Computed example of a mutant assay.
Amino acid sequence: MLAFYAMQRATGGMAFKRFLQIVGPIRETPMPSGAGRAIEVLGSPAYWVEHAGGNSVRFVRPGSDTILLSHEADIREIDQ
């Protein structure tokens, strides 16, 4: 829905049916193992998304839906 709302703002209004024609099939992606566990990135709270390959980790901040990338040395596991 966030993408639809953004497209409406960018186009001055667009019908949902037209939006679906543009984006094509929508598929659910399974959650990676460990996704959602609490971590700290440079001392600030975050949630693990997945290992991004090499020395990189994908994560999100609380209250955000933007996936960020950080070096694994910046990540601290939080014991729960």
Rank of each mutant, 00 (worst) to 15 (best):
F4C: 02
F4M: 06
F4R: 02
M7P: 00
R9A: 13
A10M: 12
A10L: 14
G12R: 04
M14Y: 02
A15G: 08
F16P: 00
K17G: 08
F19H: 02
Q21I: 00
Q21E: 15
Q21T: 06
I22L: 15
V23H: 07
V23S: 05
G24L: 06
I26A: 14
R27P: 01
E28V: 12
E28G: 02
E28M: 09
M31G: 03
G34T: 01
G36D: 05
I39H: 03
V41R: 03
L42P: 00
A46G: 13
Y47V: 04
Y47L: 14
W48K: 00
W48I: 01
W48M: 01
E50H: 05
E50T: 08
A52Q: 04
G53W: 01
G53D: 01
G54K: 07
G54V: 05
V57C: 08
R58F: 05
F59L: 04
V60A: 13
V60K: 15
R61T: 11
P62G: 06
G63S: 09
S64T: 08
S64Y: 07
D65Q: 12
D65F: 12
D65W: 11
T66Q: 14
T66I: 14
L68A: 03
L68F: 04
L69H: 06
S70R: 00
H71V: 01
E72T: 09
A73S: 15
I75Q: 11
E77G: 02
I78E: 10
Q80Y: 10
Q80D: 12
